[in-house]
Design a protein around this nucleic acid. Structure first.
Length: 612
RNA sequence: GCGGCUGUAGCUCAAUUGGAUAGAGCACAAGCCUACGAAGCUUGGGGUUGCAGGUUCGAGUCCUGCCAGCCGCGCCA
């Protein structure tokens, strides 16, 4: 089947040409085909001659001549040597037409590339009894988009929400709730979050403060106050530890209460996922507690293979190239989150047969994952049954900062929960839709309230998600509500708007579907040609975005496409085109653009309404 | 102290992994709705890519050294 990727086709023919024209090692490199950033330099360019010339000590323009002469380019277009040795390529209309035929098929030219093994995507990562804040947005939607990309490419994806549902913090929350005599049946996540914070504060022993007070001979009141505080903190800690022990030993009442906390938390998490349009349900949730019975054997396995040693009572794994060890068991015999992570990899590779595990987690845990991955390599738990090695990677993203450029900690984060952000985005989106629907002659005039609400939601959510997905994940960003809920310029709604305009155009076009889809391609105008190239670059972008875990490339390609369409729309009348053939050809280009936009928006987890 | 990330237009960010004159959006200035949705389009000003060296025909991108900010570093998750 023909390709619809000009870059791929050019790589093929130029590789042949280079192999013919150049002898030896110098011809081994890739053909270095790039899209030209200025159409004065053609549509694409081949930059291989420059590198080869250096390797063989020849004049780059001479090398370019030889390559061009040996390259069977004529089916694709024409080449011309320029500058120090670039080969500028202009694609022929017939080649572009062939590619457009391919890309307008059902799969939009995105060919599945299935693999033997599934990819596990570890995303969301919420903790029981903790409110979701804007920081959770990144893990959840980044993970969801990367999952969608892989799914679209025919790969089996296992989403795993590694829920923090085990350990002392949960026990602290439970014991705090019990002391407050709260009825667990009527609790909301906000209540749990409050209890969680109270528990944290209670347990904060101010030992340093007490010592300082003594050293500075503070008044007896101050010392007694601090002493009392410390005593009650110790009592709270004792109580929490006792609760944890009851939980771990399976005490029925404690386990029931614990399950109730999980239920309350998950209800809100799943509701948020639903509002966000993220594919995350209860079946994707596998909390830390799932691995609790495997922690002992995990540590034992490392000991048995001589990979773990005792150090100051704790059990650690050491690495050849660094000082920092990985603690896998505490001196008191308790386990750590690293132990859980090791057990989780064991399960994911061993039982789920994952060929790849991608952790969509905060960049601050880089060292942690490096240690865990290396420990896994040491013990060989990344080996699949057929002997291949699973790939472990960490898609690290930066922190959300407050306006003071400091990480949005719980205290200030409290002001803006994820739910509040989404509510605000939806409210503003709905306002905008209403504003237009109230204007006479607006395409949305007279739209029902119910539909306006649905569109407003789609627009608001797209704005929030696009703002987060369109940048490099590794970078921190300052939380700015107005930036996250913008509807103009390089935003989600801009893409949706291009889509809606086309939908409206097609409705008014009144041409039958078959007359459009059978129309001959035609793209003489520069704006039409630019649009065609933007469409054709899309399938390759999807593959690359999936490989690199880079949703921002999808955003970039979509913005480029929507922008190309807006320019085309301005410059090229569609319904009032000079002749029938042009009108149908432009309708066909519009229809194809609409389909690609909708596909792209779907991969980003955004709706594409026909009216907005 | 060791390690990591970041530094690009007034602000927020890109830059197809080393290619030609570093691009968008916001903001600012000037135009465009009796041709299909102005959430749009066109045009303009705005840059020593933190600094200094180096490699290369070619560096925002690679190497070295500085500077600044943030993050991590054995019994929290």
């Amino acid at each position: 089947m023909a390709s619809c990727d000009p870059k791929f086709d050019l790589e093929q023919v130029f590789s042949k040409g280079i192999a013919m024209a150049i002898n030896g090692e110098a011809a081994k490199g890739d053909a270095q085909i790039k899209a030209s950033n200025d159409n004065k330099h053609g549509d694409f360019q081949c930059n291989a001659a420059l590198a080869i010339a250096r390797a063989v000590g020849a004049n780059p323009r001479d090398i370019a001549e030889k390559i061009l002469a040996a390259t069977p380019l004529s089916a694709l277009g024409t080449g011309e040597i320029a500058g120090p040795g670039f080969i500028n390529i202009r694609l022929s209309n017939s080649a572009l037409q062939t590619m457009l035929d391919r890309v307008s098929m059902d799969d939009l030219g995105i060919e599945p590339a299935p693999r033997d093994h599934a990819i596990v995507i570890d995303l969301c990562g919420v903790n029981v009894a903790k409110q979701m804040h804007v920081g959770h947005l990144r893990s959840t939607i980044l993970g969801d988009v990367v999952a969608r990309l892989h799914e679209r490419l025919g790969r089996k994806v296992l989403r795993e929400n590694h829920l923090g549902d085990w350990g002392l913090p949960i026990a602290m929350t439970m014991s705090a709730l019990k002391r407050q005599k709260r009825d667990l049946k009527s609790l909301t996540l906000a209540d749990l979050n409050h209890a969680y914070r109270v528990a944290q504060l209670e347990a904060a022993t101010d030992t340093a403060g007490l010592e300082a007070a003594r050293a500075h001979h503070a008044g007896p009141h101050r010392i007694i106050e601090l002493q009392t505080q410390q005593d009650s903190a110790l009592a709270a800690e004792q109580d929490a530890k006792a609760t944890l022990l009851r939980l771990q030993s399976g005490d029925a009442a404690t386990v029931a209460a614990w399950q109730q906390l999980i239920n309350v938390t998950m209800m809100e998490v799943l509701e948020t996922a639903r509002v966000l349009g993220v594919r995350l349900t209860n079946e994707h949730s596998r909390g830390e507690s799932f691995y609790r019975d495997q922690l002992g054997s995990t540590v034992q396995a490392f000991i048995d293979k001589g990979l773990a040693q005792e150090d100051q009572g704790a059990m650690v794994v050491r690495f050849a190239d660094r000082e920092r060890p990985l603690l896998i068991r505490k001196a008191d015999g308790g386990f750590l989150y690293s132990t859980t992570d090791l057990a989780a990899v064991h399960h994911r590779v061993g039982a789920l047969h994952a060929g790849e595990i991608l952790y969509v987690v905060d960049a601050r845990q880089r060292d942690h994952f490096r240690d865990v991955f290396d420990a896994i390599h040491l013990i060989g738990w990344d080996k699949l049954a057929n002997g291949t090695q699973a790939k472990l990677s960490h898609l690290a993203f930066g922190s959300v900062l407050g306006t003071d450029k400091k990480p949005l900690k719980t205290r200030s984060g409290e002001l803006f929960t994820l739910k509040a952000l989404l509510d605000e985005a939806i409210a503003r989106g709905t306002d905008q839709v209403k504003l237009r629907a109230n204007q006479t002659d607006s395409p949305t005039e007279g739209t029902s309230d119910q539909e306006i609400a649905a569109i407003g939601r789609a627009v608001g959510i797209a704005a929030v998600k696009y703002a987060d997905l369109s940048g490099d994940p590794i970078k921190d960003y300052v939380f700015d509500l107005d930036r996250m809920i913008a509807f103009e310029g390089d935003t989600g709604p801009y893409i949706q708007y291009a889509h809606a305009r086309i939908a409206s155009l097609l409705t008014k076009g009144a041409a039958t579907e078959s007359s459009i889809s059978n129309a001959a391609w035609k793209f003489d105008h520069a704006a039409e040609r630019a649009l065609v190239l933007a469409i054709l670059s899309f399938p390759a972008t999807i593959k690359m975005a999936a490989d690199l875990g880079s949703p921002q490339r999808v955003c970039g390609a979509l913005h480029e496409l929507a922008n190309s369409y807006a320019t085309f729309y301005q410059a090229c009348p569609v319904l009032k085109a000079p002749d029938d053939a042009t009108r149908l050809a432009r309708l066909r280009l519009s229809l194809l653009t609409k389909r690609v936009l909708a596909q792209g928006l779907d991969l980003l987890g955004m709706d594409s309404p026909d009216r907005m």
